[in-house]
Design a protein around this nucleic acid. Sequence first.
DNA 1: GACACTTTTAACAATTTTGTTAAACAATTA
DNA 2: TAATTGTTTAACAAAATTGTTAAAAGTGTC
Lengths: 206, 206
Amino acid sequence: MSKEKVKATEDVILDAAMKVFTRRGFAGARMEEVAKEAGINRALLHYYFRDKETMFNLIFETRFNEFFSGIARILSSDLPLFEKIRQVINHEIDTLTKHPDIPRFVIMEVASQPERLIQYGQKMGFNPRQMLTNFTQQVEIAIESKEIIPIDSRQLLMNVMSTCIYPFVAKPIIKTMMQMDENSFTSMMEKRKKDLYDFIVKAITP
Amino acid sequence: MSKEKVKATEDVILDAAMKVFTRRGFAGARMEEVAKEAGINRALLHYYFRDKETMFNLIFETRFNEFFSGIARILSSDLPLFEKIRQVINHEIDTLTKHPDIPRFVIMEVASQPERLIQYGQKMGFNPRQMLTNFTQQVEIAIESKEIIPIDSRQLLMNVMSTCIYPFVAKPIIKTMMQMDENSFTSMMEKRKKDLYDFIVKAITP
DNA sequence: GACACTTTTAACAATTTTGTTAAACAATTA
DNA sequence: TAATTGTTTAACAAAATTGTTAAAAGTGTC
């Protein structure tokens, strides 16, 4: 069998595993469901990947990276503060519109095993503990120069992240409460990029 | 054995189940862990409660109610807009400081079975779909009277809820990233009541 | 203390889920 | 085409988890 075919099968399995693990979490995921989703036999999963945990680690690493790497890059860049905030908002809403289940998945699994955060952070080459130092300093400088009003930089960052990410974490609840279908949710998020940026800028501008 | 003792045992079990289910979710929870946490034997769980699902439903109902009832009451009250926002913030931060795992639990379980939202909402006597109508109208009136700037009421509500709830949902991540222990997290949230209110008011005041 | 009653446990049974293996099958190549 | 290698499956085995039961232990009452 050709290399391409092997790769294809591996990818089919990984895609299926991604869906199932992200949907159900590690504890709720069933190897049977992964196999079914991939259109193959359960034994084949074990042929390509040792066991459930091995598969899960691959998936988690990917999702963890998707969740953190973009934001880490932007936060530690040397963009001006307001532009940085705009880019964080746009980046989060864009990627989470494509992969809305990522934050719920990552948060859930980190909550059930917090040590993963440090562990995978190191693996991915960024230290979650230091992601914020650049941003914090930048906020303090902007305060001193009266570019923005005095504000606790941690609170500001929490506001930015919360308003971007929470709507996707709570998407099933929000969709129901606000009587939105998939399309209206997406278009609302698209609109949100601007609305949210304006909201935050107005809140911190002197 | 006395009625009090029975009640006590039931409560011990429910408390234990609450902890374990909230920590692990339905799929991740083990009856053995519940029994251990309660300091009893697994068979006894089945003596007091039929099975895992029955126990889970009791827990879920309680947590679901804790998550929604307070906020529903405040949102549909006839308080002035700003006061309503302040109360939402204070209520959320206070109750979630006491029970920080509630939103992660409820959100996770609703995500894995969205029909629960309508189902339990009806059971608890409030319609998640109508929780927002009062607030929405109030915002529109406030815009017309120039009390606040023009803003999409859904976006505003999403901002308020996100900034209150997300820090608790992502608590393990935030604590690590911001290098906080339990105490500093709590005191930060206490401070957040005021900071967040000011932030939001400034964002919407003309 | 004998009786009726509830609570608790240990041992067992059933079910669900995961992991293994041996053999069939397919593709590649010498 | 036969040998080699890698792929797939069905059947099986093991482990983990849940649920049941019969009997022991405790409690209150007469």
